[in-house]
Design a protein around this nucleic acid. Structure first.
Lengths: 207, 207, 207, 207
DNA sequence: AATGAATGAGAATTCATTCAT
DNA sequence: CATGAATGAATTCTCATTCAT
């Protein structure tokens, strides 16, 4: 097809931000859409619109939707993990380190409430992110495993399978944080204190 | 309008079998598809196929998909609630009743592992069942509320908000049961013993 | 399949009204549903429900939905035609008979406003009633044809094709009656007087 | 955000042809299907097939089916209105302008017979186009209202409600045009002359 | 005669993904 | 690199009609 001059149109527009910005915009869009519209409406079209890019653009950076959500998940996980281990010493006093870890976790959830919510949603929907990403994400970090095993050995922690310990430590905190978020609040100091104390009562050994 | 005797007629007909069977088949299909394919694939088409009926048939018995899933949810809830309150006495000894309740709950999850998993899925996806059904289902049963309040008053239970108590009682058991289910197992006696003990340690008062 | 006694159930119910009543109920239901829900929602299921019978019953009396609506249409047409020709004499004075006819028509529309509306709907949707029924219904009744031809001959009526005459006589009255119906009113005396006078001005000959 | 010059980029790209063509094809398809299959069969699937596109394509250009039909309606209305007001002067001689308007209308119907038929269908089925579009379309254009009011004041037009005047002017012409269309014809010169004369006789005042 | 149940065909709409530009 | 347009496959739901009883 040949075109005569007046069949062309001249568009003037700002230079496109490069990769990083697009990716950031996409990641942020995932979080926004998930929280505002619910993950049921987390469609490629909505994400792209929110990010201000074309749906097709997503496929330049990621194999598919799943891969993208997986990356968002890992990003968020890294964000929270960064706070989780602040001042943590697996070899320190068990009770203190135990409570420190949970305090760090609660602090992280409060620091990134939106991201935490999204991570919670993704945890509950393993099939929207790639299997391997999810399985990796599920594994306890090595320092925590070390801490847990040492605790078992010196009987400062109750002899319970890891999944059970998690069910009485991180999970209740996550659960209550989600409830607070839906109430447009954060975990209160009182919340955190009670949660940590209950977790410790549940998990300490020698009983 | 009044009718004289001979305007009445007596009709003898076989009890409808098909209806009941179809409904049972549909409910079972919801459970099967949810467990085998994940709730993301819980489409009307798949449910109907699994139940061996036409998708249109579903709409004879239910207003829409949501209404049907709501009914399945209520059925399952009734099943589990029936076990939950066996021998439960809100006015009995706090520790004993507390542990009895959780034992009953664990027993119920083990008695209906498939149904329990599905209920877990539905609990995490409130929007796939009608709002009123879910809200009803979410409320703590009155006997449990009474028990909780009494426990607070006599300080046998820790002063913690209901959502926090739940996060250290029913939720961990549910969580571990789900893990066991994915391992094709049930909660072991050891699991149950530890879970209940940890819950009690977390929740008992006077500390 | 053999059944034991308790697999039977005894149902006591009023004797069913026979054919005529069912048919009347169905016809009335067509009118009700058309007016209340719009002809877009004129489904067999709705008609049957409104009539208090099973959808299957309809097919005992009629070949299909179309045939049934056709019969309703003819019934209504007969109702209106019965009023249309009251005191009409094709050989009488042209102006008087012309106005009498239209007055009769307006009177009929006001006497059966609901039926008239339904007939209007059916006229606008020829494909929901059988072709032959509709075509028959469209033909001008013989007395009117005679009157029209006589009027042409003695020049008391304008020389215009029948479809054009109808477009300035019956159609405007129908049209305004429909508007009034939507306003929950009938044709007023003033309406009727003006409509008839305008029709006569349009159609009289010798100009 | 301010941008320096080199953050702007000039993009030269061919004018989109496809879009326009697809939209035209869709509009034409609506007309074709409506005329060939009746509006009862005016399904998205049929429209898309006729236009040679996928049904999903329709939703790129329009929010939904209703919005699309509304646009088609407005296009057609614009087409006809353009002819309707040719040389029309609301302040000119009443009889002349009256007849001019109807002549313009008849001319428009003859110029776009297919479109006119479709507009007729849409006028009879307000619910298939968006409410606001229809309401806008239904209002008499302001020049005609002005003309009508002036005619009432100086008694050159009969004192009759607007809906009655319409029922003796535009509606009969529409009606006869539809009949002619079904006969694969247009309004003949004789048709038009008679229709306009009858309309004038019906509507002129001072009688 | 009468019916409740059942269904195939088809309705509108959405979505993840691809492709020509 | 970036995109608007395009679409096949899937979604939920409705309906006229039939069938076993």
């Amino acid at each position: 097809m040949t075109l005569t001059l007046n069949e062309w149109t001249f568009i003037i527009q700002p230079m496109r931000y490069k990769d990083e910005n697009k990716i950031k915009a996409l990641h942020q869009a995932v979080i926004d859409v998930t929280l505002n519209e619910g993950y049921q409406n987390l469609s490629v079209a909505k994400i792209a619109k929110q990010a201000g890019v074309s749906p097709a653009t997503l496929y330049i950076y990621y194999k598919d939707k799943k891969a993208m959500l997986g990356q968002v998940y890992l990003n968020i996980k890294a964000l929270i993990d960064a706070k989780l281990f602040a001042n943590f010493d697996p070899k320190g006093d068990t009770e203190f380190q135990f409570k420190l870890l949970l305090m760090n976790y609660a602090t992280a959830l409060n620091a990134y409430p939106r991201e935490s919510m999204v991570m919670g949603v993704f945890n509950e929907h393993p099939d929207i992110i790639p299997d391997d990403v999810f399985e990796t994400g599920m594994n306890l970090a090595q320092p925590i495993q070390d801490f847990y095993e040492k605790g078992l050995l010196d009987h400062r922690l109750r002899a319970a399978a890891p999944e059970i310990v998690i069910a009485y430590t991180f999970e209740p905190i996550t659960s209550v944080a989600q409830i607070r978020f839906k109430e447009n609040q954060l975990l209160s100091k009182a919340d955190i204190q009670v949660l940590i104390e209950m977790a410790w009562q549940a998990c300490q050994g020698g009983r």
